[in-house]
Amino acid sequence: MIRTAIRLTPTIAFPFFEKRNVNDYNKLHEPEPQTANSGLDRVKKMFQRDEFEEVSVELHNVIQATLSGAFIGACFGGFLKSREAYVKFIERNQATAFTSTIQAKKQLQDYVTIRFAKGAVHWGWRLGLFTGCFSLITTVIAVYRGESSLIDYVMAGALTGGIYKANLGVAGTIVGATVGGVLSAFGGLLILNILKITGVSMEDVRRVLYNIKLAREDQYNQVLEKSAKEKHDNLTRHHDKLISEKGEKKIEEIS
Rank of each mutant, 00 (worst) to 15 (best):
83 R>V: 09
19 K>R: 14
245 E>W: 04
153 Y>E: 02
94 Q>T: 11
22 V>W: 11
72 I>Q: 07
66 T>M: 07
223 V>K: 13
168 L>T: 12
217 E>G: 02
185 A>T: 12
65 A>F: 09
206 R>D: 14
59 L>M: 07
180 G>V: 06
248 E>Y: 09
221 N>S: 06
55 V>H: 09
177 A>T: 10
2 I>W: 12
121 V>N: 08
225 E>A: 13
190 L>M: 12
87 V>M: 10
205 V>R: 13
77 G>Q: 09
205 V>W: 07
97 A>N: 11
7 R>P: 01
241 K>V: 12
94 Q>F: 07
235 L>N: 10
124 G>Y: 02
93 N>D: 00
65 A>K: 09
153 Y>I: 01
129 L>A: 01
58 E>G: 03
39 G>T: 03
50 D>H: 00
192 L>T: 01
167 N>V: 12
242 L>A: 03
124 G>I: 01
222 Q>H: 10
86 Y>S: 06
245 E>G: 03
110 D>V: 11
175 V>D: 06
120 A>P: 02
238 H>F: 13
241 K>C: 11
209 L>I: 04
75 C>V: 14
205 V>D: 15
99 T>H: 10
32 E>C: 13
114 I>G: 10
135 S>R: 13
136 L>N: 02
94 Q>E: 09
251 I>V: 01
217 E>L: 14
168 L>K: 14
191 I>Q: 15
103 Q>K: 10
106 K>V: 08
80 L>K: 15
132 G>A: 02
117 A>P: 10
129 L>S: 00
153 Y>N: 04
26 N>F: 11
134 F>C: 06
244 S>I: 08
157 G>Q: 03
146 G>M: 00
208 V>H: 02
217 E>S: 04
240 D>W: 03
19 K>I: 07
188 G>C: 02
122 H>K: 13
115 R>P: 03
69 G>I: 13
142 A>I: 10
117 A>W: 12
83 R>I: 10
53 E>A: 09
155 M>R: 08
87 V>C: 05
135 S>T: 08
161 G>Y: 02
45 K>H: 11
232 H>D: 12
123 W>T: 08
24 D>E: 10
63 I>D: 04
202 M>F: 11
248 E>C: 08
186 F>T: 09
248 E>M: 08
251 I>K: 06
76 F>Q: 07
225 E>T: 14
238 H>S: 15
224 L>F: 07
227 S>M: 09
184 S>Y: 05
41 D>T: 14
93 N>W: 00
167 N>P: 08
60 H>G: 05
4 T>P: 08
59 L>K: 00
153 Y>C: 06
114 I>Y: 06
141 I>M: 10
104 A>P: 11
172 G>T: 00
179 V>S: 13
31 P>A: 06
53 E>F: 15
43 V>H: 02
157 G>T: 02
184 S>P: 03
68 S>H: 09
212 I>F: 04
207 R>P: 08
158 A>S: 01
71 F>H: 12
211 N>Q: 11
